[in-house]
Design a protein around this nucleic acid. Structure first.
Lengths: 217, 217
DNA sequence: GTCCTATCTGGACAATGTTTAGATAGCACC
DNA sequence: GGTGCTATCTAAACATTGTCCAGATAGGAC
């Protein structure tokens, strides 16, 4: 058989199953294609090709093409969560926590634009926020604690919820808009992309609150 | 010929060419499909079918599929511009202008979710903001004037530009996030979608500034 | 060693974006 | 008023995509 050699070749590198952990390999292949060839090239067949399997193979691990890209998106959300966690931990003054979260969020989106769009699209297709955004320990919870550290009354639940959503909306908006090339001049004026992001976020409500209390003090 | 009758039928309503103003007809067909069957169904062939022409016909009016959907998106931007203009005009107190713009922007996106996403995608594919957003008389200019009315120093060009961008980012962020079904409970608590949108925007920097000056006064 | 089941392949199908050659019709010109 | 020109449209074809199905393959349980 022609593909007997192929099977052996793939089995050589000690993978558990027929072709190893295809599920994982497909997700990795998907990200590779996304980064190198853009979102338009991210087809099921291309992913299968990149992983070295037939076009039908992915259907044993994912119900759909959507299901596969949802898995890729999920990886993205995990990394974003990690970045948020790290950013808040890195802030010396807890009052800067939210601001750092915002910068980290936007920076992640700017460094992985295609992935971020995939992440949002995938979430929005089911009209449901990704689990990692809702998770207490990584997304929603981190923002809420940062807001409390800034001075939002933790007992005013309505206000706290609204502020959390607002912070999330603002970060998403900046993340997606910051890519337009109209802003390149402004970025240079401000000395780079990160200062630009900070400047925009500073104009946005809760993100500016630390600045205000800072100025007031 | 089979299509001779068809041609006559379309020529009856006084259109200039073979099948009339196909360019326009295709854009309208595109929007109809987008509304009724969602963005996934918006294929070139489906649009041609809906307009009653062959799959190759659109290529005489649009260079690409992208070019066609860009035309659909362009219509969307025009309507959004009109909505913004109207919202600002309707505000009694000029200090409420920006706030009204924000609500109108988000409401438009919520009423035409598929179209709004198409608009953003189409703009972001060429990494270039849509012309209507940059236009002095409809997009950028309206926001800037509303900001000046709110008290932003018109001579501080850097701050004015940053504030304009921030306002745009915030509106975009809320527009896209407001669709998640996690917020439905909150919307009910606040008495509908518009109050919800207002509440979020009020937590976002410049949109809240009128509220602050209002409270201060 | 034999069966079971998960996993993969090859081939097929409909649908899509796009191109090509050829038909059609409005328009200018003689 | 007929003749060509050119824009517009059709029909047919091509490669590619998502998806499904029958059959091959192999790891694990008994």
């Amino acid at each position: 058989m022609a593909h007997a050699g192929m099977t052996r070749e793939l089995a050589q590198d000690g993978r558990p199953y027929h072709h190893g952990d295809l599920s994982r390999a497909l997700v990795l292949a998907g990200r590779r294609i996304l980064e190198k060839e853009g979102p338009a090239a991210l087809s099921l067949r291309a992913v299968a090709r990149e992983a070295g399997v037939s076009p039908a193979a992915p259907y044993h691990h994912f119900k759909d093409k959507c299901d596969l890209i949802a898995a890729v998106a999920n990886e993205g959300w995990q990394e974003l969560s990690a970045a948020i966690l790290e950013a808040r931990a890195k802030a010396k003054d807890p009052r800067h926590g939210l601001s750092e979260i915002g910068v980290a969020y936007v920076c992640f989106a700017r460094e992985n634009p295609a992935l971020y769009r995939l992440m949002y699209d995938s979430a929005c297709d089911r009209e449901d926020m990704p689990d990692h955004a809702k998770d207490e320990s990584s997304g929603y919870g981190q923002v809420r604690e940062a807001l409390i550290a800034i001075g939002i009354d933790p007992h005013n639940d309505l206000d706290l919820r609204l502020a959390t959503i607002a912070a999330w909306c603002a970060a998403h908006g900046v993340a997606e808009m910051a890519g337009f090339k109209e802003f390149e001049g402004l970025k240079e004026e401000l000395g780079g992309e990160v200062p630009f992001i900070r400047a925009i976020l500073d104009h946005l409500g809760i993100y500016a609150r630390h600045a205000r209390t800072h100025h007031d003090a």
